[in-house]
Design a binder for these strands. Structure first.
Lengths: 104, 104
DNA sequence: GACTCACATAAGTCTGTGCTTATGTATTGG
DNA sequence: CCAATACATAAGCACAGACTTATGTGAGTC
């Protein structure tokens, strides 16, 4: 769940795709395999990496394991990115606009 | 300069450390080596990866090459992270506070 | 013009990682 | 209770990547 693990976990395109699919909604390991040409163990291993990085969370229900996005992982990246906020001042206005929209 | 390259570039702890040092201010390759126990070619290779990922920019002046943070790279990560904004609503308030402080 | 300096590039090695097949372990259904 | 389902884990392999030493190149120095 360290910074190291998070960036390494996201370095793999397949894992980023899996993560993106999870952002659409909670899914179990078998459902996640749909669309990927990937063996079951491969997916299981990818999920293990994402899990230990704190990017996804699991919930066992019977013989199914439901996976969902873990906000803590994203918060870590956000925190990292914040250290370099000084380098993208042009983004601040867009951010303000976004927050304004969220208030409505 | 794709998403793939950026996350792969940041997956290495040494490269993240180099990037962090550059955030402190523009430096050339030799200055960057200070503090690291790393050969000159190793640093050169790391910088090449960061450069092709669009995370740093180079500027040749004589026989020195000055490196600096490239905001475009950070913007890419920011954009990626934005897709998952829905998952960290608790961060919004902190963000508002930050923007407020930046105005002053 | 030879020498040094600041880098980049080449080539080789060694470790890490992503994949596979094979197997283990609960859980559920007939 | 036995077979099927949904997953995790183990072991082995092949490739990617981070490092090294060696060498190349262009800009300053004397």
């Amino acid at each position: 769940m360290s910074e190291v693990d998070i960036f390494k976990a996201l370095a793999d395109p397949t894992r980023r795709a899996v993560f993106e699919r999870l952002a659409d909604g909670e899914k179990n390991a078998t459902e996640l395999r749909e669309g990927f040409s990937l063996s079951q163990p491969a997916m299981s291993q990818h999920l293990a990496v994402l899990r230990s990085a704190g990017l996804v969370a699991e919930q066992k229900t019977g013989r199914h394991v439901h996976y969902r996005v873990n906000p803590d992982g994203l918060a870590q990246i956000h925190q990292w990115l914040n250290r370099y906020r000084a380098f993208w001042p042009q983004r601040v206005d867009e951010l303000k606009q976004l927050l304004k929209e969220m208030d409505q």
